[in-house]
Amino acid sequence: MNRTGKWLLQIFVGVVLCCSTALGYGQSAARLQLANLDKLSDKAARVTDVTLDGTLLELAVKIIELDKDPEADQLKDIIRSLKGIYVKSFEFDDASQYSQADVEAVRAQLTSPRWSKIVQSIDKRNHEHDEVYILKDGGRVGGIVVLVAEAKELTVVNIVGDVPLEKVMALEEHFVPERSHGGKHKPNKERSHDDE
C-alpha cells in the first residue's frame, strides 16, 4: 500500500470512529439519568416505572405484529422508530413530598444546547410546572422529555429516538393495558389528565 492509500485509510477509520462516537453520544444524550428519583418510591402512593430499551422494544414490536387489529399497526410504527422509553411517575397523597432539587437534577440534564424547551406551563396557584423538551438530531427529533411537576405528582417521560409526535398524540385510548402489567403500582384510584 502506498503512502496515499495509508493516508486515505487513516482518514476513513477516523471518520468511522467519529461517526460511531457521535451516534453513541446522540443516544446517550437523549436518555436522562433518572435514578435520583428512585428514592421517592417510598413516599409515593402510586409509582409507575417503565424502562424499555431497544431490545425490549423490538420484542414488543414482534408481539404487536401478531395482533390482527389494524390499529396495532399505528402502535407498531411508533415503537419501531423509538430506541428507548423511560417513564418515572410518582403520585403522592400529600403535597410537597418531593424537593425542588429532585426536579432540578432532571432539568440540569436538559441544559445542553441540543435540548430545546418547546413548551412550558407554570401555574403558581396550583404549584404546577410543566415542560416539554425535544432533542434536535439534525433535522429530526432525537428524543423528547415531558416533565410534569405538580403539587402531588412528579412525572418524567423520556422517549429516545425519532418520536412521531403526531402518532403518539393520535394513539387510541383503548390501547391502555391492564394496570397490573405496567410498573409497580400501589393501590390508589387511577388518575389521568385526560379525565380532567
Binding site: A60, I63, D123, D130, V157, V168, P177, G182, G183, H193
Partner: peptide, 26 residues
C-alpha cells in the same frame, strides 16, 4: 414480549396524556 408491549403502551399513554395536559395548560 407481552410485558414489554404492555409497558410500551403504558408509557406511550402516559406520554400522550402528559403532552395533552401540558398543551391544555398552555
Amino acid at each position: 414480549a407481552e410485558r414489554a408491549r404492555d409497558q410500551a403502551i403504558l408509557a406511550l399513554q402516559i406520554a400522550r396524556s402528559k403532552l395533552n395536559h401540558v398543551l391544555q395548560q398552555t
